[in-house]
């Protein structure tokens, strides 16, 4: 059994998502090779038998061809279920006609059998699937496995630089725009901090903006706040405003009336801050704080910066 780990890199280091997969290989005591898409100084210290470094910028299609090339030597190819990773692996799957399991949250090996667990129906259930095709392609949900690296003996690993041929691409990348420059759109943001009528005026919304900027998110408002003129209609979250589905929704001073819930109930994690312990929002929140947002939010921003 041998695993190929396709590792994403950032600033010449392996990303933590790569380290997670390497942890799995280490813990399962399965030999693995590392294919890094980009330079990674720490690649050879982690116990991989071979490190294949790709140092030119390849299109997704060509990266996929490269992976497909190496594929037959392995029983399992592991990657990250980021948008880039899923795109890459889907191309590999299509090109090589090997089955792919995306967004897996658990991997288990029992003897020769690999069992993967993945969420289905938006996480309302988890399916445990025995994978019996070889090689199998698996992308792992970021942060699902956790990083548990062990000290590796300094086994010399071969480091190959892979030359990949750039084909006449069907899809030609002409430009890349980084996402961090502007604030994310309310409906697309990973983090939304929302304010209600208790913000009392539009200047106070700056408290929420500071927290949002700190977390790379954006600010929304309840209808009551918009009605009162503290926020614009573009910021309104709810039945007659926008529907948002962020990873984290922080409701500050929002009671949780049904019209508001209709716009944010699919948020993955809901944090509610309200001075009223009986506010309905606490019924649907994951974390609740009975506190004054004017004190808590700035303090939180402070702790996070």
């Amino acid at each position: 059994m041998k695993i190929l780990v396709i590792a994403e890199t950032k600033e010449s280091k392996l990303k933590s998502t790569a380290l997670e997969m390497i942890s799995f290989c280490q813990q399962a005591k399965i030999p693995f090779d590392l294919l890094t898409l980009g330079p990674a100084e720490d690649a050879h210290t982690l116990g991989a038998e071979t490190c294949i470094g790709v140092h030119q910028i390849l299109s997704a299609r060509d990266s996929a061809s490269l992976v497909a090339q190496h594929l037959p030597a392995y029983t399992l190819i592991l990657g990250t279920a980021s948008l880039a990773g899923k795109d890459l692996f889907a191309r590999v799957s299509a090109q090589s006609m090997r089955h792919l399991y995306q967004d897996v949250t658990q991997l288990a090996l029992q003897g020769e059998t690999l069992t993967i667990t993945k969420p289905i129906y938006a996480g309302k259930a988890f399916a445990k699937i025995e994978v019996n095709t070889v090689p199998a392609l698996v992308t792992v949900r970021p942060n699902a496995l956790g990083v548990h690296l062990t000290e590796q003996e300094n086994t010399s690993t071969q480091t190959n630089k892979s030359e990949a041929t750039t084909t006449t691409d069907r899809e030609v990348l002409t430009k890349v725009e980084q996402g961090q420059s502007e604030r994310p759109d309310l409906t697309e943001s990973r983090v939304v901090i929302s304010g209600g009528r208790s913000l009392k005026n539009s200047e106070n919304f700056n408290i929420l903006w500071q927290l949002a900027d700190c977390l790379g998110g954006t600010v929304g408002a309840s209808r009551a706040a918009v009605d009162a003129g503290y926020a614009t209609h573009a910021m309104q979250v709810g039945q007659t405003g926008k529907t948002v589905s962020p990873k984290v929704y922080v409701a500050c001073g929002i009671s949780g009336a049904i019209q508001h819930l209709a716009g944010m109930k699919t948020s993955k994690h809901i944090i509610a801050i309200n001075t009223d312990p009986d506010a309905p929002i606490f019924k649907i929140a994951d974390y609740g704080i009975v506190s004054d947002l004017f004190e808590l939010v700035p303090k939180l921003t402070e702790k996070l910066s």
Partner: peptide, 18 residues
């Protein structure tokens, strides 16, 4: 694809008050 088993997520816990 036939899962060998299905699991339900832990029941949504009541709000954790901090």
């Amino acid at each position: 694809i036939q899962p060998s088993t299905y699991e339900l997520p832990k029941a949504k816990e009541a709000c954790k008050m901090i």
